[in-house]
Design a binder for these strands. Sequence first.
DNA 1: TCCGAACTTTCTTGAGTGTG
DNA 2: CACACTCAAGAAAGTTCGGA
Length: 291
Amino acid sequence: MRFPSVSVEELLQQFQEAPSEWLDDAGRETLRAIGRFLDEAKTGVDAEKLDALLASSPRTLDVIRLFLGLSQDEMANHLRAAGGGALSGTYASIRDRLKHDHVRATVVSALVRLGAVHTIGAHLRKRWTIRDVLLERYQFGRGRAVKGQLRGRSLENEVEQRLRRLGVPYVARVTFIGRDGKQAKADFAIPGAQRPKTVIESKVYEATGSKQTDVLGDILKIVEARDYLTYFFVVTDGLGWHNRVSDLRHLVEFQQRGMVSMIFTRATLGKLEEAVRYIYQHEYGRQSEEE
DNA sequence: TCCGAACTTTCTTGAGTGTG
DNA sequence: CACACTCAAGAAAGTTCGGA
């Protein structure tokens, strides 16, 4: 059987909007939990009330999350931090374990520590307007995306500030050329894109997702492309790593095997600065001064 | 103008770990 | 040993920006 060749225009003509809807079974359950929550908590809640509502439906945790304006990942990050080591796992796994009295008690006290009682009360007593609705939509649509980007950029910017302060020549957001003309993308190449002596890549993870696994691939590409003697520093941070410890282990293994020279965090940026300065002065500073 | 890149969010799947 | 539970990893889809 033979088919006529298709054209782009033809296909574009045929394409329809993919049908979809926002309410699935989990959503319906959450809506019910919202209803119960509001019936029970007219003007406010306390720890006991939260515990009772969480016991009656695990979806109550989603309702509380909505009051706090947090994503599942953010909520899990906060709960784990406030739980002081007593809480572990992803958001869904914490929610599933609410049926155990001791887990629920830990979650409730973590919620109290996070100010949930206060926040929920304030929300319940607030008089909401159309302005608030629009603001919320904006905040959780574009606002979320912008927030993510700024988060990623903030660490990159801090690294750049340090480089600038050192007065080291560098190129930012660059495809550098390494060994045998191989190329890879990196955030910073020192002193330049052509066979750099030092390469720096920075990543921040607050949420989970494939990105985290992808980055190991990106890092390997840099490892693959750089000259054998090129220093490669990874600067990373963010609570999202708690959800991807195995990926972190891989990264650490890269460092232990010498594929990555060193892993720095926001807390150790000073050490990165020292390292870059030292390398620049002792290992290739002289040549560039002579030029 | 378009594409790649940055980052999020959520769901699913599969492997490992207990437990009766 | 079967079953339930837990967790890690991956995939699909989304929002936006910025450089070629």
